[in-house]
Design a protein around this nucleic acid. Structure first.
Lengths: 150, 150
DNA sequence: CAGGATCCAGTAGGATACTG
DNA sequence: CAGTATCCTACTGGATCCTG
């Protein structure tokens, strides 16, 4: 059962893996993709992200390391590398090296990555779209805390 | 512009917040919800999660602290408390105290939480559903690494 | 039962310097 | 340009003990 035809049996696999269980492999996968940098990298490679002098959403396209680094402000080179390596290992992004001088490296989503990208963009959009609402709730919560203490 | 009618203007707010920017508040919100425990808590409160002697998906319903703790195996009491407090502060879950002895505390999703729950369940389901595929990719990647080194 | 408070180890992750 | 390697700190998060 470990060496079954994996790709087509996902509907079945869904019944076998359970992320609620600490020992289930899917728990680790969930941890890996539940990462702010993963969300932002996938959103970037998925075509979300303003390009100079243009509206917010572009087309999905291969992106270079430095390009990603610039778009995702605040990410360290270490974390970006680490994130991209992990995603490549899991088959979510592909890495292409073109032997120019200096070398050109591009990243893009795989089919598997594309199947996840929509979800991740949804998360990012949700955060951006409900920010005001969340801020309002926080104010209320903090005020209640303040009142309770005196 | 800070005190506008927040709830209905989300479509507008979406144009104002950008999680790609390190200084944008939505970046912090994205970090907060990009958390394995958040994903699992929302999945649990959203009705995903096997109940004894039953199929995998139940109905959304209020859940007690100990119940969540048992369902989400491996979570420490500290992290569960911390996660629930943060979600409560952000208006994603609500906390209800019933003054029995000992006290009964239940958690459930708010409307805001319900709007996020679908996305989070999607992430969890993706992880469970694509586990095999990811494992296959990892094997290939690791093998290639091994070959490259010798 | 549902946490709050403490203590402490592990590691995530930033800064810096160097390489093909 | 696109990383790798190293060092080091800060925070995450688990374990434990205690309370209303």
């Amino acid at each position: 059962m470990a060496t079954s035809t994996a790709s087509e049996r996902r509907a079945v696999a869904k019944l076998q893996y359970d992320a609620f269980l600490a020992v289930c492999p899917s728990r680790q996968l969930l941890e890996r993709i539940s990462d702010k940098w993963v969300a932002l990298v996938l959103a970037a490679l998925g075509g979300d992200g303003p390009r100079p002098g243009e509206a917010s959403h572009g087309e999905p396209r291969p992106m270079r390391f430095s390009e990603l680094s610039r778009l995702i402000s605040g990410v360290s080179q270490k974390m970006l590398t680490q994130t991209l390596r992990a995603l490549e290992r899991d088959g979510i992004v592909s890495r292409t090296v073109t032997p120019t001088v200096p070398v050109t490296v591009t990243y893009e989503l795989t089919d598997l990555g594309r199947s996840l990208q929509g979800l991740m963009r949804g998360i990012k959009d949700w955060a951006e779209g409900h920010m005001e609402e969340v801020l309002t709730h926080r104010d209320g919560y903090d005020q209640r805390q303040y009142d309770a203490v005196g």
